[in-house]
């Protein structure tokens, strides 16, 4: 296939980059400008050839995201009242209940979206930010693929918040049955939002610099 040929040639001959040609690229609209311009005259975005401070933003958003994720798992997500019995369930308890009722598929979706994706995202974003300075750990193609997956899948964690919203709006039947959202709903939503911001802050161009050996920063002397 054509793509494979391009891929293999790309590995040997490092392609010209905007930075290498003395240009700064706008990541929003793909226009290039002479190095030193600070704002894209086409779309108005800020221009950074490489934004090293972006790594600090990645870590900052991610730490807030993790902090919010802890109460999201401790406090109840749903408070259910059926006739005279009250039950409260956290995210994981909710999924276990579903599995006990035989809905294994849905239980899996909830566990995947609310536990596997957030935890996986923390690990993946942390790894991406960490590996910018230790690029020999994984081929840039794989790191870039990881970044794309994180960007694509992160939003889907919000599904549990929507489930709670739908249940709480729908099941309001006086004393027969009612469902109200618990405090975990908001901390979980905030955790998803902050991790999305962490992923958006990451500058994937840093994966590719010097054919995957990281950007030409003073820190590159560390790498063997």
């Amino acid at each position: 296939m054509q793509v494979d040929d391009l891929e293999s040639t790309g590995r040997h001959a490092e392609p010209v980059t905007a930075r290498g040609a003395g240009l700064v690229a706008c990541t929003r609209c793909t226009r290039v400008w002479p190095m030193g311009e600070t704002r894209c005259a086409r779309c108005g975005s800020e221009l950074h050839s490489r934004d090293w401070r972006s790594l600090q933003r990645v870590w900052a958003w991610m730490i807030v995201g993790i902090v919010c994720y802890i109460p999201a798992n401790i406090f109840p997500m749903l408070k259910t009242q059926v006739l005279f019995t009250h039950t409260e369930s956290t995210i994981i308890e909710g999924a276990i209940e579903l599995a006990q009722h035989g809905s294994y598929g849905i239980a899996f979706v909830i566990l995947f979206a609310s536990v596997a994706i957030p935890v996986g995202k923390f690990v993946a974003i942390g790894f991406l930010a960490w590996s910018v300075r230790r690029p020999e750990r994984l081929h840039p193609h794989h790191r870039h693929r990881l970044y794309e997956v994180v960007e694509f899948i992160g939003r889907w964690s919000m599904i549990d918040v929507f489930v709670v919203a739908i249940l709480a709006a729908l099941v309001q039947l006086n004393f027969a049955a009612s469902i109200t959202p618990g405090p975990a709903a908001i901390t979980f939503a905030l955790s998803v939002i902050f991790t999305m911001l962490a992923a958006q802050s990451f500058d994937p161009r840093m994966i590719w610099d010097h054919d995957g050996r990281g950007p030409d920063n003073h820190l590159t002397s560390e790498t063997p």
Partner: peptide, 8 residues
Amino acid sequence: ACPQCDAL
């Protein structure tokens, strides 16, 4: 310029 990898 590729917005993901800066190739020109």
